[in-house]
Simulated scan of single mutants.
Amino acid sequence: MIRVANINDLGGVLHLYKELRPLDPNLDSDFAKEKWAEIINGPQTHIIVAEIDGELASTCALGLNKSIANGARPFGIIEHVVTLHKFRRQGLSKKVLEFAISLAWENNCCKVMLLSGAQLIGAHSVYESVGFKGDIEKGFVIKP
């Protein structure tokens, strides 16, 4: 089942993110619950999940960013695309991405952007399979 995450999905999403970013620090439980509630209850971030037999198997995050450009239409950013290792090669990343893209279009986004590690060639083919083009714009990142 592909759906938008709910308040009860925190543990499953944190498990997915641990697979994506194993060196991230563990969050204090109360802090994690507070931040998760802000995300789930806010209108600008949607966490999409694929659930198999009660376990979250795949996810991506869609951020909706307001804009005064493009007729004041928002733009979407997809981040944190991950599928648990044991569920890979089943098309789940593609399904959560398609769901997120549809949600962006339902919210009148003028475009959806996604950044990916330059070395993740396998992931790039998944992104291209749902319509992303790697040669339209160039992404840049700065980290503290």
Rank of each mutant, 00 (worst) to 15 (best):
A57R: 02
I7L: 12
F87Q: 09
K94H: 07
E106H: 05
V4K: 10
S102Y: 04
V126E: 05
S125E: 12
G122Q: 09
S67F: 02
A57N: 03
Y127D: 02
S116T: 12
I78N: 06
C110W: 07
P25C: 10
C109V: 09
V82N: 00
A118L: 13
F31Q: 13
Q119C: 13
F140D: 10
I40A: 05
I39Y: 00
G11A: 14
R88K: 07
A69L: 15
W36E: 08
K143T: 13
P25A: 12
V81W: 00
V81T: 04
I47Y: 03
E137F: 14
N107H: 09
T59H: 04
S116G: 05
Y127K: 03
S58W: 07
G117C: 13
R88I: 09
I40L: 06
G117T: 13
G12L: 03
N70P: 04
G12H: 01
L62S: 04
D28R: 03
M1P: 08
W36M: 07
G11M: 11
M1W: 09
N41D: 11
K94Y: 02
K18Q: 15
R73Q: 12
V82D: 01
K94N: 10
N107G: 05
S129A: 11
G139D: 07
E51N: 04
P74C: 06
F99D: 06
E19V: 13
D30P: 00
V49E: 05
F140S: 08
G42N: 02
R21S: 11
I52G: 01
L120T: 13
Q90N: 11
V81C: 03
R88A: 04
E128H: 05
A72M: 14
H15R: 15
I121D: 12
N6I: 10
N108Y: 12
F31V: 15
F87N: 11
P25N: 13
K95T: 05
N108H: 10
I39W: 00
V112L: 04
T83H: 01
F99E: 10
F87D: 06
S116M: 07
E51W: 03
